[in-house]
Design a protein around this nucleic acid. Structure first.
Length: 407
DNA sequence: CTTCCACCGGAAGTACCGGTAA
DNA sequence: TTACCGGTACTTCCGGTGGAAG
């Protein structure tokens, strides 16, 4: 026992003695908001001029911000909002800002709850009607005279699984006779979102648009270089390493988040090896590591029946041509019976397969077989060993659960 | 050209849970 | 305590649908 404790102490002391190659690691984190955003001047000034009327407590029009992941939408919006807030504070103008990631918040209720807390209301986790939150929000805005700028990030996720009712209610506040002032900045990486919106929401939300184009490799290089100067010690990251990170991220539509993550993880790997600089090998290793982490994270949080379906796919030993929904469902029913579990309906299994597809764990492509119907061609997109490893422990508990259900 | 397969996927409803307000 | 709330996971129902076969 004491042996182990000594061992822990040794690790900590070694950590204290060693010098990190990071100067300020926080600056490499994906949610860090830098002071400057290279190659985004145009978008920044456009958005600023759109929200500027708020400084006279005039309602400004809602804005729709569109661009692929990691193109700076969130950073630009948050930076503009925080500058606006500060300017308001300086001049005693009651501007409030609210940032909500709709995908993470997940539901109308939690989005409203976040907005309420940003204007100084305390809201219980649950128990209230969503319309009640909306009423309280409007009332708070009216009575305090605050103007709220709400940034709704990944608003496409909200519309996809909750519909556009909330957006409609929110856009209506600004247009109604009430004194409440609320402007929305909707951020989406899916342009087809507009097709799913009600005409009234569309005209109100998408009246003004700011488009973010993907970064090129050389723009990514500039972004990385600027961060490196603050985040790492001098001389530990070579130009070649920065160029490699930029190039790897540029392959995926110029994703700055990926570029920064890549360099940060590579730096952490180098640190752990007590290496005095980040090498290209670290970057390549980091890329592999990040992919593994993503997959095992996804696997670990999967519900029971999704796991059973994945086990099925592993057991079926799919060739290159994959399998179909119907075949998966037959196998799934067999496996459920052997586990003494009640199988779900085919509709649900089809839905789970689509969910696994969007998580990147399987590849499900719609295929028509003409006279022989339509189905999804399903293939695993991760190595079967990874699934087996992740579930090797849990399968025992799955079997135990099966027995529990039976008894 | 029409038919028709084997599903897809939207919509609405159900059951259950953990929570709140009055 | 009771009536109501949201969240999650699921079922039921059903109107599509791409394209090979006839």
């Amino acid at each position: 026992m004491s042996n182990k404790l000594e061992h822990i102490d040794i690790i900590f002391e070694e950590f204290l003695r060693s010098t990190s190659i990071f100067k300020d690691r926080e600056r490499m984190r994906p949610d860090y908001l830098p002071e400057t955003l290279p190659h985004r001047d145009r978008q920044m000034s456009r958005l600023s001029s759109m929200v500027a009327p708020a400084l006279r407590l005039d309602r400004c029009s809602n804005v729709f911000v569109y661009g692929k992941t990691g193109t700076g939408k969130t950073a630009v919006s948050r930076l503009v909002a925080s500058r606006l807030y500060n300017k308001g504070m300086e001049n005693s103008i009651p501007i409030r800002t609210s940032y909500v990631n709709c995908r993470i918040a997940g539901t109308d209720y939690r989005i409203l709850s976040q907005m309420c807390s940003n204007v100084g209301l305390t809201i219980p986790f649950t128990g209230l009607a969503a319309t009640e939150l909306l009423t309280r929000l409007v009332h708070a805005l009216e009575s305090t005279g605050q103007l709220l700028i709400a940034i709704l990030d990944e608003v496409d996720a909200l519309v996809k699984d909750q519909g556009d009712d909330l957006l409609y209610e929110l856009t209506r506040i600004n247009e109604s006779d009430s004194k409440a002032k609320l402007s929305l900045i909707g951020i989406s990486n899916d342009l087809t979102l507009k097709e799913r919106l009600d005409a009234r929401v569309l005209s109100s939300l998408c009246g003004e648009e700011v488009v973010f184009t993907p970064y090129t490799a050389s723009e990514l290089y500039d972004i990385l270089q600027e961060r490196v100067a603050f985040a790492f010690r001098h001389g530990v990251v070579s130009r070649g390493v920065i160029r490699l990170c930029a190039a790897r991220a540029a392959i995926e539509h110029g994703d700055a988040r990926k570029a920064l993550d890549l360099l940060r993880v590579a730096g952490e790997l180098a640190d752990r090896e007590h290496c005095s600089e980040v090498l290209e090998g670290h970057v390549l290793l980091a890329e592999r590591r990040m992919e593994c982490d993503r997959v095992s994270d996804a696997l670990r949080t999967l519900p029971l029946h999704a796991r059973i379906i994945l086990c099925d796919l592993v057991n079926m030993k799919l060739g290159s041509c994959g399998t179909s929904t119907g075949e998966v469902y037959d196998e799934y029913k067999k496996l459920c019976r052997s586990l003494l579990l009640e199988p779900l309906t085919q509709r649900r299994v089809s839905g789970i397969l689509s969910e696994l597809d969007s998580m990147g764990l399987v590849n499900a492509k719609l295929q028509s077989l003409g006279r022989y119907g339509r189905t999804k061609r399903i293939r695993l997109s991760v190595a079967p060993e990874m699934i087996r490893d992740a579930f090797s422990q849990d399968l025992l508990s799955t079997a135990a659960l099966g027995e529990k259900v039976a008894s």
